[in-house]
């Protein structure tokens, strides 16, 4: 019996030692260790979060933050030569590609909400935006109520479209709401006077206006219809990888490095046209920086 005890003890010690020196890797971390590669999913035109520059290289605010996660994974797995593979994704392909393991994290401008959390996990929120209305400056639409009997456009499949449709129904506003296939198409509807206003995340509105032929022609309302936290997506049910990713983003926020990265993309000229979005950090985002959270409930950002 004594020798049996000793074996058990030895095994236990070994187990603890293994636990301390190198954790038993599972999920995404194991996959990254085995393949020596981490795959980032990027968007091709989500300015300034994740988009292609002149040389077709994905850049942006979310990309910079994702590279911080890559650095943390390198340190964690002691893999200085970790290769980064870049995979373009669209709103339709990001979930299948994350689910089947092609992409390890999506770095774009994806709204974190409770419904989506049933399918994927969100890393700590990296940006907070709001649903607002953009119109021609000569019409100056402030409230949804100003749109009675007029046409309002939003992009199909967005939480913005969902929200205005609900408000239109519950408040009985009588707005004719139409869906455009993507953001530029929706913007064009306002530009060509097909729609009086465009409901969208304000940060996307700012960037669309900044790129337009005549930015002074457009007005973005001060009234905020909703709060939309953006986050990087990772596979659900993989707490080890999420912990590394959360840790990396939290460290960037705590160290104040976030301010530098923020300023680079939102307060300075950015490629490809060297326009400056000039959007100071919102109070909601400042709150997240002070107390990082991955909540998908808009109420926790007020």
């Amino acid at each position: 019996m004594k020798s049996f005890d000793r074996i058990v003890l030895a095994l236990l010690t070994l187990g603890i030692a293994a636990g301390v020196s190198g954790q038993e890797l599972t999920g995404t971390l194991k996959k990254i260790k085995d393949t020596g590669t981490i795959t980032i999913g990027y968007r091709d035109a989500s300015i300034p979060f994740s988009y292609l520059d002149d040389s077709q290289k994905p850049i942006g605010y979310s990309m910079d933050l994702c590279y911080k996660i890559v650095d943390a994974v390198k340190a964690q797995l002691k893999l200085p030569d970790l290769k980064v593979a870049l995979q373009p994704v669209t709103s339709a392909t990001r979930i299948p590609l994350i689910a089947n393991g092609t992409v390890d994290m999506e770095c774009g401008s994806t709204t974190n909400n409770l419904e989506r959390q049933q399918q994927v996990s969100f890393v700590v929120t990296t940006f907070v935006t709001a649903n607002r209305l953009m119109s021609k400056a000569k019409n100056k639409i402030v409230n949804l109520e100003d749109l009675k009997g007029k046409t309002l456009v939003s992009t199909s499949g967005t939480s913005n479209l969902k929200q205005v449709t609900e408000l239109n129904g519950t408040k009985n506003l009588g707005i004719n709401i139409v869906a455009a296939s993507d953001h530029p198409a929706a913007f064009q509807m306002v530009e060509s006077d097909r729609a009086a206003a465009f409901a969208m995340d304000d940060i996307l509105l700012y960037s669309l206006v900044a790129q337009s032929k005549n930015p002074a022609d457009y007005y973005i309302s001060t009234v905020q219809l909703s709060t939309e936290p953006y986050g990087i997506i990772v596979r659900k049910g993989d707490p080890d990888f999420k912990k590394v990713a959360d840790g990396a983003i939290t460290a960037v926020m705590k160290s104040g490095e976030i301010n530098k990265i923020y300023a680079k993309w939102f307060l300075s000229p950015i490629p490809p046209k060297n326009g400056n979005l000039n959007v100071p950090m919102s109070d909601a985002l400042k709150k997240v920086v002070a107390n990082p959270t991955d909540s998908g409930d808009p109420a926790s950002y007020k």
Partner: peptide
């Protein structure tokens, strides 16, 4: 197809 796309965007239940 548009409805299917919008359904997957809202719910993330793409398949």
């Amino acid at each position: 197809t548009a409805q299917a796309r919008s359904m997957q965007e809202f719910s993330f239940q793409v398949f």
